[in-house]
Write a protein that binds this DNA or RNA. Structure first.
Lengths: 329, 329
DNA sequence: GCAAGAGGCGGCAATCTTGCCGCATACGGT
DNA sequence: ACCGTATGCGGCAAGATTGCCGCCTCTTGC
């Protein structure tokens, strides 16, 4: 069984799970069409015959198929791996909860939380300092919380410290507040050469995973932020966003203002109709590349220091973060 | 050749057209992946062998394939039918151009323009009146321009009149201004029963056409707005939108305020995680149903009066529109 | 109670896709 | 000039999809 097919089967099962009555190919096809997925009735029946065999569904006379309890359970387990739109949804919720005002340079922003062992902190600080100094972070601030010091809703236990860094979706929040609707296209690894972005080597769409792409890449040690910082050649975390073409100029201006309040992170703003870093765009849209907020932690992890990262973690008032020069001294 | 395959082939050709050098399966697959379309290299080569035969592409040694001039032309023609994202892009541009302020109830909004023969106007007015009175329109205003009276950038010629109605995407604009990012899911025909929405019977995704869905349905005489107005049972134009779940409450409040300023049109606001009118939603999103701004014109067309409609037409200051009771007297 | 229509089912046979493979080039570096 | 790597090509065959059909089984209206 093909990964692709499996996914389609899940789509079919999902429709069944949302209905209390048995459904047949036609109705299911209709429901899927509404969800933007085209599949012929015949194909659906074909899949259903497979799931029948697997015991996930069963026929109810000629009235259609129903999920069996096994099928229902299967769907729930599958959801864990395939919670489509989960990260995307969480991101949106957090963005909506922001109240950061560009003018005042204060208000709640979305942060990532990373936890590491207290004994590793000095080394980690040295690494992060290099990353911040080279401008490979998102913004110029962070917050380090020691045991007992509450950071948002997280309190590091004994022997732990927690590091809060601004999350790249905070940019979306600010843009939205300024009337620019920014959508996430994907997150991935960006190859840089001579400190300039070259192209994405790996991408993961936000709406296909339960983890932030960068978290995955950090865990997989697929980044080389330190090298990028040191030599200008390396692979860092970044994400690709889109905005409506008429908003491009405004976005460019906002990028500058963000920089000035300590939220710089927009590396590139494309031109209307032009692919950006080889990424094709729909007519009327322009692309942007934003640095990953977890890049400093990626560098830390590269040094062999164990970290636990939680992107899109929570909201924190920007004022609580301090400039890196102060914290990482 | 299958419609589906044809579309995929166009995707492949499009990639080729954006490159100046010849490309092979691998690079094309990579580019398509960035665009969110998965296709194996092999499949792409398979398609390329087809287009080779059709003379749309040609091999350049072992360096890859290139579009021929025939292929380039083909792509352009195909674009007319398949200008993906064209309407969506236009809609976004217009939304971004709005400056309507909910508080003041004034500012530019997106309108549809409809042209009809002056001699039909009295009859049309009677029809539209019924639609507006029954609340099947978007908002309670419109503008009728006679020959010589400029409406936006359009001046009706002799014997013509032009009718401007508020376009349903104006709602998106207001929402955006209030910090709620609203995305268009699809437009379609909504079956109503007892004046209440029942379900969508036809849908067209915005990003797959060059025409506004409702325009198409009006031309095809597939609506029965008059009947809906008269008996409560019928089929009207409507569209389906989505917003982030945390914004649902705010949207509900805004719907009321919109109503009060004369921009009422939100028929339904869903509940987080619940399908709305059978339309499934991603986790963390809620659906909304908005009446089509062209419904009054649909009713007019149903009466056999010839109209030309242009949805997403242009921006017009809301103050220039008058309440229907005044204009349609 | 009966006919019509909607919707469901699965066999069969075309097509469409894709994985696997062996082989040919193109390009950069030594 | 020579080698290694990346990329390209298309044959073959196994799956995956889907159209076409003939045949059931409810529901509904009369």
């Amino acid at each position: 069984m093909d990964e692709r097919s499996r996914r389609k089967i899940l789509d079919v099962l999902r429709v069944l799970s949302e209905s209390d009555k048995p459904l047949g190919g036609t109705r299911i096809a209709h429901a899927l069409a509404l969800a933007g997925k085209d599949m012929s009735q015949r194909t659906i029946r074909y899949y259903l015959s497979i799931t029948d065999e697997e015991g996930l569904t069963q026929q109810v006379g000629r009235r259609g198929r129903q999920l069996t309890s096994v099928g229902r359970r299967e769907l729930e387990t599958a959801y864990v791996v395939d919670k489509v739109g989960f990260v995307a949804a969480r991101a949106e919720a957090l963005i909506f909860g922001m109240d950061f005002k560009l003018r005042q340079g204060r208000g709640k922003v979305v942060v990532n939380l990373s936890v590491l062992r207290a004994e590793d902190l000095p080394r980690a600080k040295a690494v992060m300092r290099r990353v911040f100094r080279a401008g490979y972070s998102l913004g110029d601030r962070l917050l380090i919380g020691r045991p007992g010091q509450k950071v948002g809703s997280y309190t590091p236990g004994p022997g732990e410290v927690v590091v809060a860094t601004v999350c790249s979706i905070a940019i979306n929040g600010v843009m939205l507040d300024e009337g620019v609707p920014m959508t996430n296209r994907f997150g991935g690894l960006l190859q840089v050469s001579d400190h300039k972005p070259l192209r994405f080597t790996q991408i993961i769409n936000y709406d296909g995973t339960t983890l932030d792409p960068l978290e995955i890449f950090i865990k997989g040690r697929m980044t080389s932020v330190s090298q990028a910082v040191a030599t200008g050649e390396g692979v860092i975390g970044a994400s690709f966003r889109e905005i409506p073409a008429p908003a491009a100029e405004k976005a460019r201006r906002l990028a500058g203002r963000l920089e000035r309040v300590g939220l710089g992170g927009i590396i590139l703003v494309g031109r209307p109709g032009q692919p950006l870093l080889e990424v094709p765009l729909a007519t009327g849209r322009v692309g942007l590349v934003v640095r990953g907020g977890l890049n400093p932690m990626a560098a830390v992890e590269e040094e062999g220091i164990v970290t636990t990262n939680r992107a899109f973690s929570q909201l924190l008032p920007f004022e609580q973060l301090s400039r890196w020069e102060e914290v990482l001294a």
